[in-house]
Design a protein around this nucleic acid. Structure first.
Length: 466
RNA sequence: UCCCCAGUAGCUCAGUUGGUUAGAGCGGUGGACUGUUAAUCCAUGUGUCGUUGGUUCGAAUCCAACCUGGGGAGCCA
């Protein structure tokens, strides 16, 4: 006798006739007057639950088995058998059932065996992993994460763990969370009245990272091909279905690469992970396709089998100006594209993901490489239908004089960028990279509308429960 | 942060043009039936009507502020 997971039993890893013990949580119990009960048991190992057939000959049948309700934790020992019923090929003929934990009040157990709203489930972040949908999301999320690592590993990239705490406040990607051990009720002050951060833990102001890019660049300029995959923090007061205060980001950084090469890398990476999820999580995807968004499967298949459309910002402006669509925000060369514009391009004009490239330099970050036209920078966004920007990337400015000029123009303090400038002083090389919002990827793959439902414990403004 | 919408049973919602005893489905529970599987059928309980204040003889209903959630926008991944 050995312990078995639900997925191993359902996929026939344990031959018919083998006795195994399966442990998990009761999804439903149905009693039959023929003297048996059917218990659907889930343990997270796959989408489907295992059906255990429990006869009334078990000693605890009336005292315990018939009192099982949704959510109870049990161990069921029995013989693997070919199922006599519809809906599953294998089932467990129980010879023993042990209860680990009861549900103290079935009437108020929050995860009732019925349809719940996503908003409701979010309020029970500690119990929602027991639902079909959250379980499926997390298996897909894991599959995608593993596939991301596998893709980069197979392509010769090193995973570099860039710091989560940063003392540089100049990453330039939004509001940051302060990290401090100073006593907020009794702050040390300097003579001029300002706070004396020299007494703080790091001897200076420190924050949670908003991007691993700048640190990743230093390792790319030595190890050639690297990527980061870790948590990222933005203290923006963003209240939308596609923003989190704490999210995970995948950021490859490639020495000797230009914009088109990292655009190609982004496409190859996305196709790789989409293929992986279609192969490894067909059960969960089928559920999403049936219950959440019936275009999920078609969308993934189309993504892996067709080339991404590349488009210059300048051409996109032309298309938007001449498409006859009425936009709330007018379009002209030089403006940043609004959500409605990005949606039109991805959803209507292309009907799939589109890679926009070469944006006006004035609407982009200081580190992006200037193109020869003097007006644009080598930046790209990958826009996905329904979700918007899923990837943002660029070639990095590797010429010190051009970078310095840009820092001056944007009135950024050169001293703060000393180590970043050093990369351009000592053996500089062209390099490029991008950032992928991991939760946006999970949302796109599953069809789940709100990004808060594709991360185990979402952090958003005014919400850090659990 | 801005605009719009919502908050009524364990859940999803209906309802109240201000007036006594508040409605349905689902879930739960009990029963019938059944190798069942979103089972089916019968029966059954449940409410500070988001919070605080105001108007009124009377507020769950009208008004205000606040809180929470949703949709959209901005910031971005």
């Amino acid at each position: 006798m050995s312990y078995a997971s639900v997925v191993d039993v359902l996929t026939g890893k344990h031959p018919v006739g083998t006795t195994v013990t399966v442990r998990g949580w009761v999804r439903t119990r149905r009693d039959s007057k023929a003297g048996i009960s059917f218990i659907n048991l889930h343990d997270g190992s796959c989408f489907d639950a295992l059906q255990a057939v429990v006869a009334n000959t078990l000693s605890n049948y009336s005292s315990e088995v018939q009192k099982l309700t949704t959510g109870c934790a049990v161990a069921i020992t029995g013989e693997v058998a070919a199922s006599q019923g519809q809906g599953q090929s294998f089932e467990l003929q129980a010879s023993d059932l042990q209860v680990y934990g009861w549900v103290e009040d079935p009437d108020t157990y929050p995860m009732a065996p019925k349809r719940h709203s996503m908003e409701y489930l979010r309020e029970y972040a500690h119990l929602r992993p027991r639902t079909n949908i959250t379980g499926a999301v997390m298996r897909v999320r894991n599959c995608l994460a593993q596939a991301v690592h596998r893709f980069f590993h197979e392509h010769g990239y090193l995973w570099v763990s860039t710091p989560i705490i940063t003392a540089s406040d100049c990453e330039g990607a939004g509001e940051m969370f302060r990290v401090s051990t100073l006593d907020l009720m009794n702050l040390p002050h300097k003579d001029d009245g300002s706070i004396d951060f020299s007494q703080d833990f790091f001897g200076k102001e420190a924050y949670l990272t908003v991007s691993g890019q700048l640190n990743a660049e230093t390792y790319a300029c030595a190890l050639s091909k690297v990527y980061t995959f870790g948590p990222t923090f933005r203290a923006e007061n963003s209240n939308t279905s596609r923003h989190l205060s704490e999210f995970w980001m995948v950021e490859p950084e490639v020495a000797f690469a230009d914009l088109d090469q990292v655009a190609g890398l982004a496409e190859a990476m996305l196709k790789y992970v989409f293929k992986a999820v279609m192969e490894e999580r067909a059960d969960d995807l089928a559920f999403f396709n049936q219950r959440i968004d019936n275009t999920v499967l078609e969308r993934l298949q189309k993504m892996v089998s067709s080339d991404f459309v590349h488009m210059d910002y300048t051409d996109a402006i032309d298309i938007l100006q001449n498409c006859g669509e009425q936009f709330e925000y007018p379009v002209s060369w030089g403006v940043d594209l609004q959500s409605e514009h990005e949606r039109y391009l991805a959803e209507k004009h292309v009907g799939g993901p589109v890679i926009l490239k070469n944006y006006p330099r004035d609407i982009k970050a200081f580190y992006m490489r200037q193109n020869d036209d003097g007006k644009t920078v080598a930046a790209m966004d990958v826009l996905a239908p329904g979700i918007g920007e899923i990837i943002g990337g660029s070639a990095r400015e590797e010429r010190l004089d051009v970078l310095d000029k840009r820092l001056d123009e944007m009135q950024l303090p050169k001293a703060e960028y000393q180590w970043y400038r050093d990369l351009r002083r000592y053996g500089t090389v062209p390099h490029a990279g991008f950032g992928l919002g991991f939760e946006r990827l999970v949302a796109y793959v599953t069809g789940v509308q709100n990004i808060r439902d594709v991360i185990p414990f979402p952090r958003t403004p005014k919400n850090a429960s659990y």
